[in-house]
Design a binder for these strands. Structure first.
Length: 894
RNA sequence: GGGCGAUUAGCUCAGCUGGUUAGAGCGCCUGCCUUACAAGCAGGAGGUCCACGGUUCGAGUCCGUGAUCGCCCACCA
């Protein structure tokens, strides 16, 4: 029997192999538990993957997101939950359409030239290609999702559910169609929602114009605007009713220059007397405020732009000009008319299309909307009542802020790629919303019906996923069992786009669900992954780190561990490869520890890896100690994961495995391993036991490496098909051993002090030296018992126990528990030693002063907890002694 | 215009409800190929915890003000 691992750790080799194995064996596919079955008794843990867009490849943010989800889901799985992690992709309407259009453009084609049908075929081809790429990448990252349940937001069943939701909302009066001012992207040629507009500060200009009175061209009213071209569509000028300056003008007419039409001066509260001249031009078709004013005063709405923001026939001589060309011409023309009244700098924000960064134009158009208030009310309540919690908690605030100031949601898009709106138009003007194409118009009976050309906002369908993925509107067992999902892990960038919408729609459509209507119970919001210089990654900056590339370079396990160890809540992650390099070294460390174990296993006759040990077998301190440490950190790691503290969990394991297990335990047991066969076999049993447990503890973070070693440990016959199906370690109180841990600390301290003295005195590493040791009897007994360990690890060849203090021996070291000195003929470096001692003494004295000040303070003694006071007292007496010894040593140096 | 977050070692970040000596990785210095691992081992240097004020017996931690940086939200021309 032999346990083979290649000499060098090559992550690429082992990772692709296990990635394929997990998928092929369907290890993470979940059958819906049958009622009454054993599975049905287990707690359920459901996780929905935020579906990546099919626009391209996964980026670092996806990898962070998926690493966190995978760590949690693997941990829960190993803790005995029925764990379902549902993967999928999003059709991402506007984004995907843009990509395909760009692709077409490079071939000299256009979407319009191709026609709707052929264009959609092109998009489906694109989806097939990129959807597959995303799937392959996820597999490579080790995401333990249930591939059998993979979804795409435009799958037939999901599309049917979208239609059903639309129809029901319409029936409930929560969807309406109407002509309003919407955000219009002239490049994408579609309406977009408020959320899809990004505001950017802009150093703009404020232009002032004079509009002459119709009946007295010598008199003017001065107005100001940042968008001069919109004056072509002005239908009034408004002043504040309380503004005395304009009292006499209200009701009179102005002559709108350039367009030469008369427009009224009206009184409206909106006009702010403090701003500019106090008079404001009103363009109901091109400004949301003006639109409202127009409604209040029954003003005409003159739309002066086409869908590409070029001036249309309503703009008279300006027809055909682009909006900015028109702006220039309007300015010139007003100036030549002598009606230009000034220009000044005006910093304001402009809205840009989230997708293409084109400046958005407020435009009057007919769109479909969701009446959002009723949905928002319930969504607010769900979080207020704690049905949903946020981690970090802070995000609840942001959520409330948005939810409480919500506006109706424009859901129609003038795109081709997406879920087509289930409404049919008849020539008679009737619009029928229905689940399927109606036979005839219910009003006029015509059979010439045409489906609405618009599609739905992408987020409309993704907002439904928490219930549609389980088969809604059918009453399925999946819905009973898996809804509500347990946890949502996502980025803050889609808090409103997606999280908020899921809550509103989930609560609405799942109202009355026996396990609660909310789509999930907890939302964990993770940070942004930035580059090493904290810059946002972006294609234009060229600082995008491709997860697959970095994974190929360092191994998936190392990258996963990097992300996990840096994922502390609330702060962005500055991803630096140097950190990843460090974790690859950690993976390598684990690998070599395994090789070390296997090497001994193969060497010692009759040795086998019997997992499990009983307490009475732990007759050696190092074993009592390592078992205690293992269980203690197992408790800590479980707690950290329960709190979504991936960083704490990862760092705890890292420190344990490297700093304790490898640096100390393995070194301590080496003599036993090469000792008599029985002793070696015993040592190997404990070693294997702790190692195996450590692998299980590490497995959610480094699934590939741990899988590889775990299988090798069991010589290809593991108790489960995968370490991912084994139990996660938990703290077992009976193994915790405070005494063993305290004793080890003393021994470690002693060994380190001796090593330090040897280094300072420049003792050749190969030369062994004796030491003198002075301590209380219990410490002395401890050192006696573990004499071999101390001698070996400290490079010592004899311990002389001294009855008196060693403080005056040059180069000696004093601690509260012991004093130790090297027996070495070479002279100590007096100057260096004096410097060291002086520094140490100063530190001790500062601390002493602190302690004395506190202990001399009545208030402190009266108010501080006894434990704290007692601690400081004890420390004070220690300090007292250490300072005395330090002084002695220092004076001895001369 | 509102709201939020951050500021701790040269760099990147931990530090949980205030409690004895503020930690890690990388980098740096010194010495080592010691029967797994040089992707390693051992030893070491390095911090006015942004500033000021306050609460408290006690503040990196709580409160205020300011500075610097970052983010989110926002229909005032």
């Amino acid at each position: 029997m032999s346990h083979e691992l290649p000499k060098t750790y090559d992550p690429g080799l082992i990772e692709s192999r296990w990635a394929e194995y997990w998928v092929a064996e369907k290890l993470f596919s979940v059958a819906t538990p049958e009622p009454g079955s054993q599975e049905a008794q287990k707690p359920i843990f459901t996780l929905l993957l935020p579906p990546p867009n099919v626009t391209g490849r996964l980026h670092m943010g996806h990898m962070l997101n998926q690493t966190e989800m995978d760590v949690i889901i693997r941990w829960r799985r190993m803790r005995g939950f029925v764990t379902l992690w549902l993967p999928g992709t999003d059709h991402a309407g506007i984004a995907t359409q843009m990509m395909v259009e760009r692709q077409l453009a490079s071939e000299g084609k256009t979407r319009q030239g191709l026609g709707r049908e052929a264009f959609l075929q092109r998009v489906w081809d694109w989806k097939k290609h990129y959807g597959g790429a995303i799937q392959a990448q996820m597999k490579r990252l080790g995401a333990s999702v249930d591939w059998d349940r993979e979804y795409f937001t435009m799958d037939e069943n999901l599309s049917r559910a979208v239609t059903e939701v639309f129809v029901r909302l319409h029936e409930q009066g929560l969807i309406y169609r109407g002509m309003y001012i919407v955000n219009w992207c002239p490049r994408c040629m579609t309406a977009i929602s408020d959320l899809e507009v990004v505001h950017e500060d802009f150093a703009g200009k404020l232009y002032q114009f004079r509009y002459p009175l119709a009946d007295d061209p010598r008199q003017f009213v001065t107005i100001a605007t940042t968008r001069p071209e919109t004056m072509l569509g002005d239908t009034a000028v408004a002043v504040n009713p309380a503004d005395k300056r304009y009292e006499n003008l209200v009701g009179r007419k102005l002559r709108l220059p350039l367009m030469e039409r008369e427009i009224p001066i009206i009184a409206d509260e909106f006009a702010d007397p403090q701003f500019g001249s106090g008079a404001v031009k009103v363009t109901p078709a091109h400004d949301p405020n003006d639109f409202q004013i127009g409604l209040r005063h029954g003003l005409a709405q003159i739309n002066i732009m086409d869908e590409q923001a070029r001036i249309n026939e309503n703009g008279g001589p300006y027809k055909g000009l682009d909006r900015y060309e028109a702006r220039e011409k309007v300015l010139r023309d007003m100036e030549s008319l002598g009606l230009f009244a000034g220009i000044k700098d005006h910093a304001h924000a402009i809205g840009k299309c989230d997708r293409c960064k084109t400046i958005v134009e407020p435009r009057l158009s007919t769109q479909w909307f969701i009446k959002i208030q009723p949905l928002a009310d319930r969504a607010i309540e769900a979080v207020e009542k704690g049905e949903i919690t946020f981690t970090p908690e802070n995000y609840a605030k942001t959520y409330f802020e948005w939810m409480r100031n919500i506006h109706d949601w424009c859901i129609s898009r003038q795109l081709w790629w997406g879920h087509r709106i289930p409404a049919w138009h008849c020539q008679c003007g009737e619009i029928t919303v229905a689940r399927a194409t109606p036979d005839k118009c219910p009003k006029c009976g015509s059979t010439k019906l045409e489906q609405d050309n618009d599609v739905l906002d992408t987020w409309f369908s993704s907002g439904l996923l928490p219930f549609t993925v389980f088969g809604w509107p059918e009453k399925t067992r999946d819905l009973d069992v898996f809804y509500p999902t347990t946890l949502l892990i996502t980025g803050f960038d889609i808090l409103f786009f997606w999280v908020a919408r899921m809550i509103m729609l989930g609560c609405h459509f799942m109202a009355g669900h026996p396990k609660g209507s909310v789509p999930f119970h907890n939302v964990y919001i993770h940070a942004l992954v930035r580059d090493a210089d904290r810059q946002k990654m972006s294609k234009t900056k060229g600082n995008v780190i491709d997860p697959i590339e970095v994974t190929e370079k360092y191994g998936t396990d190392a990258v996963r561990f990097t992300l996990a160890s840096m994922a502390s809540p609330g702060t962005d992650i500055a991803f630096s490869e140097s950190r990843t390099d460090g974790y690859r070294a950690f993976a390598n460390k684990i690998w070599n520890a395994a090789r070390f174990m296997f090497m001994n296993l193969d060497r010692v006759s009759g040795a086998s890896l019997t997992v499990g040990a009983t307490e009475n077998q732990l007759n050696k301190l190092e074993n009592r100690w390592i078992y205690s440490r293992f269980h203690r950190i197992a408790g800590e790691v479980n707690q950290s994961l329960a709190d979504y503290r991936f960083d704490e969990a990862a760092n705890t394991i890292y420190k344990f495995f490297w700093g304790e297990f490898c640096d100390w335990y393995l070194e301590i047991i080496k003599p036993s391993l090469s000792g008599p066969p029985q002793e070696a076999r015993d040592a190997l049993r404990f070693l294997g036991d702790v190692f195996e447990g450590s692998l299980r503890m590490l497995s959610p973070f480094m699934p590939f490496l741990t899988e590889e070693i775990w299988h090798a440990m069991y010589d290809g016959k593991p108790p489960e098909k995968s370490i991912a199906l084994a139990r996660y370690p938990e703290v077992d109180q009976c193994w915790l051993n405070d005494q063993a841990e305290e004793q080890m600390i003393v021994l470690q301290d002693l060994i380190e002090k001796v090593r330090n003295m040897r280094a300072e005195m420049k003792v050749e590493p190969k030369v062994k030296t004796p030491i003198k040791f002075h301590a209380a009897s219990d410490i002395r007994a401890l050192v006696m018992e573990n004499r071999a360990m101390v001698e070996r690890l400290a490079g010592v060849n004899g311990i002389e126990f001294a009855e008196t203090s060693l403080a005056q021996v040059a180069g000696s070291r004093s601690t509260p528990k012991f004093e130790v000195a090297l027996v070495y003929e070479q002279k100590v470096d007096v100057a260096a030693e004096r410097e060291r001692l002086t520094k140490e003494l100063a530190k001790l004295q500062t601390e002493m002063a602190n302690a004395e000040r506190q202990l001399g303070n009545e208030q402190f003694l009266a108010k501080a907890p006894a434990k704290v006071v007692e601690g400081i007292r004890r420390r004070q007496s220690e300090l007292q002694e250490l300072i005395e010894k330090g002084k002695t040593s220092l004076s001895k140096l001369g």
